[in-house]
Structure formats: structure tokens, C-alpha cells
């Protein structure tokens, strides 16, 4: 795009990149693609007793699932939930992608906890990067392990303050941090999948007035 002053700026486009001509893929390419896809699979590692019960067809009983996505949200759970109760680590999800770091960070990146005295509550802190093509799979695999009837899902997420769009002017933002819920009362489960905010102007334009 050329500006009024004649500079040429490269413009970010939300459109999918140029649709590649369907190149003839030889067997080796297909093999590499398959291997890469396998490597990018989301894997769940449950504790022995959980995997035993999942194997026999019993899903995890759960009335409330709290998912914290991002470092701020995860830390919020650490401070206000994990320190005050007695929690069992039930398992973790592991992903490999272009931003995966060392093994150490991976181990603690996506752990599921359950309070000892209330096994119907499950929380998870997601601090690792989930790539766009892994989000759907992650959600599908995790929810496949849970009993979905009467399940309340709460997702704690975070977004930069500069991305907050609201009709009211900034000076009324006195009570930071502002909370803007994506609300739903019609569905049993309220689920905000990671990445929603950054991929859609639509989300931020909704009726999400800060509390």
C-alpha cells in the first residue's frame, strides 16, 4: 500500500496467503508432511489411575472446568486457587510446534489439577504456545476425556490493554484491569478458545462491556 506521502508499506492481510497451485507432491514430500503432522499431534498424559478409568470407558467426572490461558491468567490461578487448596496433578497435555522450548518448560506448561476434597473441579493452566492448527485438536482431545453433562467451563484469558476497544473514553478505565467477558447463558458450556481475540475484530466488537 502506498501512503499519501509515497512510502510503500507492506500491509498485513487477514486473508489466507496466496492459494498455492496444487503442486504435484511426490512420495517423499507426502512422507515428510505426514511425519510433521504426527509430530504436531497433541498428546495427553494422564496419571495411571485416570488413564485406567479412561481406558475402561469412564470419563472424568467434572462439574466445573477452569481453563487459564496465558501467563497472567495462569498466575492468577496459581495465586488464588492452587496455593489455598490441596491439589492433585492429574496429567498434562504436551504439544510440539515451532515455538516449543526446552523440555523443562514443556513439563509444566499444561497441567491439569484437581482439588483433593472436590474431585468434580478441574483446572488447567496453559502457558505454552498452541499453534493455530493445534487449537481444535487440543480442545477436542481434552473435552473427550470429560463428562460433558452439567459441565460449566470458565476460560480465563488475557489480552493487551491497548487492544481493548470500548465506546466509553479512556479516563473511565480507572479500575484496571478491566474485565470483558464473552458471555453466554444459553449454552451450558462457555468456552473461549485461545487465539480468539487476536484473530477477530468481531470478538472485540461485541457487546463485551467491561465489568
Amino acid at each position: 500500500m502506498a501512503t499519501f506521502f509515497g512510502e510503500v508499506l507492506s500491509v498485513y492481510s487477514r486473508a489466507v496467503e496466496e492459494d498455492e497451485e496444487d503442486l504435484d507432491e511426490n512420495e517423499e514430500d507426502a512422507e515428510i508432511r505426514r511425519e510433521l503432522e504426527e509430530k504436531r499431534e497433541v498428546n495427553l498424559h494422564w496419571s495411571p489411575e485416570v488413564s485406567e478409568s479412561l481406558k475402561s470407558g469412564n470419563k472424568l467426572p467434572c462439574s466445573d472446568f477452569i481453563l487459564a490461558v496465558g501467563h497472567n491468567a495462569a498466575r492468577f490461578l496459581s495465586v488464588y486457587a492452587l496455593t489455598s487448596e490441596n491439589w492433585d496433578a492429574l496429567g498434562r497435555a504436551s504439544v510440539w510446534n515451532e515455538r516449543s522450548g526446552g523440555v523443562a518448560s514443556e513439563e509444566s506448561a499444561c497441567v491439569f489439577y484437581r482439588p483433593k476434597d472436590n474431585p468434580a473441579v478441574l483446572i488447567c493452566q496453559v502457558t505454552c504456545y498452541l499453534a493455530e492448527d493445534q487449537l481444535f485438536q487440543w480442545t477436542e482431545k481434552v473435552f473427550d476425556c470429560l463428562q460433558l453433562r452439567q459441565l460449566n467451563v470458565t476460560v480465563l484469558s488475557e489480552s493487551s490493554v491497548s487492544d481493548l476497544r470500548r465506546r466509553l473514553p479512556e479516563q473511565q478505565l480507572g479500575s484496571l484491569p478491566a474485565l470483558a467477558p464473552v458471555r453466554c447463558f444459553l449454552w451450558e458450556a462457555c468456552l473461549q478458545i485461545t487465539g480468539a481475540a487476536q484473530h477477530s475484530d468481531w470478538t472485540s466488537g461485541c457487546s463485551t462491556e467491561p465489568l
Binding site: 493455530e132 444459553l186 468456552l191 478458545i193 480468539a196
Partner: peptide, 23 residues
């Protein structure tokens, strides 16, 4: 479908407070 980046939001065509809170 897993072909699209998953996302969600409130009703984009909301006309009232009641129907704004759909997912």
C-alpha cells in the same frame, strides 16, 4: 471443522441485550 482457526464471541448481530449473549 478443524480447517478453521477456532474462535468464539457474542452475537455479532445483536439487537438487544437479551440476544447479545449468545455464543
Amino acid at each position: 471443522t478443524d480447517c478453521l482457526i477456532p474462535m468464539t464471541g457474542n452475537n455479532p448481530y445483536a439487537t438487544s441485550n437479551e440476544n447479545a449473549e449468545e455464543l
